[in-house]
Design a protein around this nucleic acid. Structure first.
Lengths: 228, 228
DNA sequence: TCATACAATATTATCTACAAATTAGAGGGC
DNA sequence: GCCCTCTAATTTGTAGATAATATTGTATGA
C-alpha cells in the first residue's frame, strides 16, 4: 500500500476519506449508496482499521451516515435536511462574504479573488456542468479563506456542498443558472468595493434564492423522510 | 468490557467519546492534555480500535487535535481560535434564537423553554459555578431544539462550548456574570413574546459582548499561537 | 399462498499482534 | 559544562484474525 502517489505521504485514513470525497465529487459514489468496508479495503489496499476511522470522520462531517451493525451509506439528504442546511449556510456564507469584503486589501486577496471570480464567470456561456461546479466551489473557498476566520472552513462544509450538488444540480433549470450568475456578479462587485454590508446581504439573498429554487423541486430529488 | 451500565448498549467508540466529553466537562481532562491510547484502553476496557475511532470523531468535531505519529490532545484554543469560533456562534445562535421565537407556540415549546429559563435564573444569586454552566448549556440546547432546525445541533457545537468553559470561565469577572444574566432575561422575554427579530438581535448582542469580555482576558487563558 | 422458524451467509464490531515512527536518555566528543 | 549521536523505550499506525450481529434464503406448517 505504498504505491499511491509518491508526492505526499497521506495517512491511510486520510487516503480513504479523500478517495470517498473524490468519488462523491466524480459521481462514482451516489447519495444513498452503501459502503462495504471490505470493498473499500480491497479497492484502496488498506486494512479495515483506517477505513473505519475514515468513515467515523466523514460521519461527523455529515457526509456519511453510520447505522450500528448495518453499515455506512453516502448520506442522502431529505428535503427537510436540505432546507435546514441551506438556512444555516445562508448566515455563514453571508458572514464569510462580509469579512472577505472587509479584508479585500489585505495581502494578495484582491488578486486571488479577482482571478477566482473571472474563472467562474468564464463559464457563464459555456455549458460544462461539472467544471462550473468546480469553479464555484473554488470561488466560495476563496471567499472563506479571505474572511480570515480559520474556523469557518470547518463550519462551511464544502464536502456537504458536494452532496447537495450531486443530488440536486441536475434538477435545476437554466433560468436558475442565469440568476445565479447575476448574483455572483453582484456579490463580487460588493466584495471588490470593500463593502461588507452589501456583500453580506447579497450573499444572503443568493443562498436564499437557491434554497427557494431547490424547495420547488419535485420529491424524486430527495431522500424519503424515513431514510434516517 | 460489558459491565459498563446495563442501561443502554452504547457502542464502544461512543462509550469512549462520551467518557472523554464527560471528562472534559468535569475537568478531569484539561485543554492541552495529551491522550495516550493505551491509557484510554485500560481505563475504559476497550481495545485501541474503538479508541482511535472515537478520537477521529472528536477531532472532526473540534474537541481533540490529532498530530500524525505524535498522538491526540484535548484541544487548547488560541486567542484567535476563540474569537473565530465566537464570531461564528454569534450568527448561528442568533439564528437559533430567532427560529425559537417563531416556534414558541409549537407543541410544548413554551412550557419547556419557560422551565429551562427559570432553572437558569434560579442561579442568579447562588454561586455554584459548575451548576450554572450546566444550566446555561441546557438553556441553549432548548433554544436550538425549539428552532426546529435539526442541522443546527451539529453546527452549534456544544462540545466546543465545554472547551471554552473549562478554559475560560474561571477568568470571567462578576460584573460579566451580572451582564450575562440581564441578557438572558432580555433574550427570554423576546422569545416568549414570539418576537423573532428582537430575539435574534438580543442573542447576537449577548454573544458579541461575551466575546469582547473574553478578548480582554490576559494571555495566560489561551494557548500559544504555535500550539497548532 | 402466506407466514413463520430456522439455517446459511454476509457484514460489522472488536481484539490481538506486529511494524513504523517518535521521544527520551545514556554515552562520548569538544 | 554543553551539544551531538546513537540506542532503547514508548507510542502510534496498520494489518490480520476472531466474535457478534444482521440479512438473506429456504423449508415447513397452517
Amino acid at each position: 500500500m505504498l504505491d499511491r502517489e509518491t508526492t505526499l505521504p497521506l495517512s491511510s485514513p486520510d487516503h480513504v476519506a479523500r478517495a470517498l470525497l473524490d468519488g462523491i465529487k466524480s459521481g462514482r459514489y451516489v447519495p444513498g449508496q452503501r459502503l462495504i468496508e471490505a470493498d473499500l479495503t480491497a479497492e484502496l489496499s488498506v486494512s479495515r482499521g483506517p477505513v473505519r476511522e475514515a468513515l467515523k470522520q466523514l460521519a461527523a462531517e455529515g457526509v456519511v451516515q453510520l447505522f450500528a451493525h448495518r453499515g455506512a451509506y453516502i448520506r442522502k439528504l431529505t428535503r427537510r435536511e436540505v432546507t435546514d442546511i441551506l438556512v444555516i449556510q445562508e448566515t455563514l456564507t453571508a458572514l464569510a462574504a462580509r469579512l472577505a469584503a472587509e479584508n479585500i486589501d489585505d495581502r494578495d486577496n484582491r488578486e486571488r479573488f479577482q482571478s477566482a471570480y473571472e474563472r467562474l464567470m468564464s463559464f457563464r456561456d459555456r455549458d460544462d456542468r461539472n467544471a462550473v461546479l468546480d469553479e464555484r466551489a473554488k470561488f466560495y473557498e476563496t471567499i472563506v479563506r479571505m474572511s480570515g476566520n480559520l474556523e469557518l472552513s470547518r463550519f462551511v462544509p464544502i464536502p456537504q456542498t458536494n452532496l447537495l450538488r450531486t443530488q440536486l444540480s441536475q434538477h435545476l433549470a437554466p433560468k436558475d443558472r442565469d440568476r445565479q450568475f447575476k448574483e455572483y456578479e453582484n456579490i463580487a462587485r460588493h466584495i471588490l468595493a470593500g463593502s461588507g454590508q452589501n456583500a453580506e446581504s447579497g450573499m444572503s439573498r443568493h443562498i436564499r434564492n437557491t434554497r427557494l429554487s431547490i424547495e420547488r423541486l419535485h420529491d424524486v430529488a430527495f431522500a424519503g423522510e424515513v431514510s434516517a
